[in-house]
């Protein structure tokens, strides 16, 4: 059940990444970091935070998201906020 919800969130987050980095073919994975996407710098980071907030209707903290090790941790954070 939890796994299914996580996958659903992952799909939606993938869409957000595609929109923000203008790459429809982008495929996010748990171990993915900013190094895997050339344009993921501090400016795009806050664009990503705002787009994620909009998609999931949650409030995120840019510093907190910046501290996360990878996309997998970002997904965990979103699961926590969205599913509760």
């Amino acid at each position: 059940m939890m796994e299914a919800k996580r996958n659903e969130i992952k799909k939606r987050l993938n869409r957000v990444f595609g929109e923000v980095f203008d790459d429809e073919k982008i495929e996010i994975f748990d171990e993915m970091t900013a190094k895997d996407i050339g344009e993921w710098d501090s400016l795009m980071h806050i664009v990503l935070v705002v787009a994620t907030e909009k998609e999931f209707k949650v409030t995120l903290n840019a510093a907190e998201v910046g501290e996360l090790k990878n996309v997998g941790e970002m997904l965990d954070l979103l699961c926590e906020r969205v599913i509760g």
Binding site: L43, I46, V47, V49, V50, T59, N61, A62
Partner: peptide, 21 residues
């Protein structure tokens, strides 16, 4: 920039990015 962006969380959407920048 990052602390200011977080402090402006009451502003929703892209205007928050523009004001921070």
């Amino acid at each position: 920039y990052t602390p200011l962006f977080d402090a402006l969380s009451f502003i929703r959407g892209n205007p928050r990015i523009y004001i921070t920048l």
